[in-house]
């Protein structure tokens, strides 16, 4: 009798152990929800601070040209860019939570970009000022639905459909393919309100810097322009290093 009671206890303990193990395993391999994926996507692209040198290669019907700049960013909102290539030398861009400012060496006034001007191609590229500086707030601006999981370039990705919460954002709808391992974007398609495909951004050149995964290249195609593309390549990346004081200030634009 005693023997059978102890066997029952052992069985109960074993069952409890396997149940707990199953819960842990389930938690470990659970598929995040769509909104959670957006948070992870933003998080994968947002750092306390970052710095990089960048090269933009612009191809259009008139030929190919390269533009170089340095870019500093802080959190979700702040970005500062300074062009170093000869044709654009001295031009600067500052983006904060509310505004986007441009500085040109021949202008005595700082230019505040607003409205449709934000959608102008930066340095004549397919990347708008808004694309370059304001893509780290998707969780706040979009609602998402997971359309499935797919294989893209040999990697497992989540396929998400994003719809804008308001009309203040640049794109009414986005389709995003997010890497299932590090939540970096692999491919994003941008649509207008009528569902017309406007742009396509393809990411590549995955690199781990200071323990953080990065896409060091992305290719943008403006689907409304024939035969154009812009490739952005980042190098000399640093993450969470201290940045120059007041770098994200208007004073720094004029300096």
């Amino acid at each position: 009798m005693l023997f059978s009671i102890s066997r029952i206890r052992i069985r109960i303990r074993a069952a409890a152990f396997f149940a707990a193990l199953s819960l842990v395993a389930a938690a470990a391999f659970a598929v995040p929800g769509a909104d959670e994926l957006l948070v992870l996507l933003d998080k994968a692209q947002t750092f306390e601070s970052s710095y990089a040198n960048a090269t933009m290669t612009i191809v259009d019907r008139f030929g190919t040209r390269r533009t170089e700049f340095k870019v500093w960013s802080r959190g979700k909102d702040d970005t500062f860019m300074e062009f170093t290539s000869a044709a654009e030398r001295g031009q600067k861009i500052l983006r904060n939570a509310k505004e986007l400012y441009l500085f040109f060496p021949d202008a005595e006034e700082v230019t505040r970009l607003q409205g449709s001007a934000l959608r102008q191609g930066m340095a004549g590229s397919d990347i708008s000022y808004e694309d370059m500086t304001g893509n780290r707030n998707r969780a706040q601006n979009y609602t998402a639905v997971i359309l499935g999981t797919e294989q893209l370039e040999g990697r497992s990705v989540f396929h998400l459909d994003l719809k804008a919460k308001s009309r203040t954002v640049a794109y009414a709808r986005q389709e995003a393919w997010i890497d299932a391992a590090d939540y970096l974007p692999s491919l994003i398609k941008f649509y207008d309100l009528s569902g017309k495909l406007l742009k396509e951004m393809t990411f590549s050149g995955r690199l781990v810097v200071d323990g953080y995964p990065f896409n060091t290249r992305f290719l943008v195609r403006d689907m409304l322009k024939a035969g154009t593309s812009t490739e952005m390549a980042f190098r000399d990346l640093t993450v969470n290093q201290s940045l120059p004081k007041n770098i994200f200030s208007l004073d720094n634009l004029k300096w």
Binding site: A87, E88, F103, F104, A123, G124
Partner: peptide
């Protein structure tokens, strides 16, 4: 204005 490189530029 737009420069030869089709880049926006400001002048005073």
């Amino acid at each position: 204005t737009m420069t030869r490189n089709r880049s926006m530029y400001g002048v005073t």
